[in-house]
Design a protein around this nucleic acid. Structure first.
Length: 111
DNA sequence: ATTCTGACGTGGG
DNA sequence: CCCCACGCCAGAA
């Protein structure tokens, strides 16, 4: 069957929407899951366009250091941190302290 | 078509 | 962990 060719952006949205509550993932893992390990930058770029979409928990996507790199793109710089802390994350200085604890790999959903 | 950008990652120090 | 330099590549102008 012919799968509709989804844009890189659409692929990113699908994965991000599947991030479970209280979990976070990285741009690199999403890119890797989409088969474009080298296009991690594009993931963030795609999330930037996700503003006009609904149900895109972009706040659960951080960089490899657990740093809230995209907090500036939210409505208010603190919104992203508030959401993460609400889900059990410990954010200090824009960085998730228990990052490893709540990290979720999109490949895990395949199991 | 070309050029620039960017919510990143890796490797080395 | 931090800092620096380079690579990556899909979309926008």
């Amino acid at each position: 069957m012919n799968s509709k060719k989804k844009s890189f952006f659409e692929g990113v949205y699908e994965v991000v929407k599947k991030i479970p509550y209280g979990k976070v993932t990285t741009y690199g893992l999403i890119a890797n899951y989409l088969g474009a390990f080298k296009s991690a930058r594009m993931v963030g770029y795609a999330l930037n366009s996700s503003h006009k979409y609904l149900d895109i928990p972009a706040h659960r996507v951080v960089n490899r250091n657990g740093l809230l790199t995209g907090r500036h793109h939210f409505s208010g710089s603190l919104l992203m941190q508030e959401l993460l802390e609400n889900e059990g994350a410990i954010v200090i200085e824009n960085k998730i302290e228990n990052f490893h604890d709540m990290l979720w790999d999109p490949s895990s959903k395949i199991k």
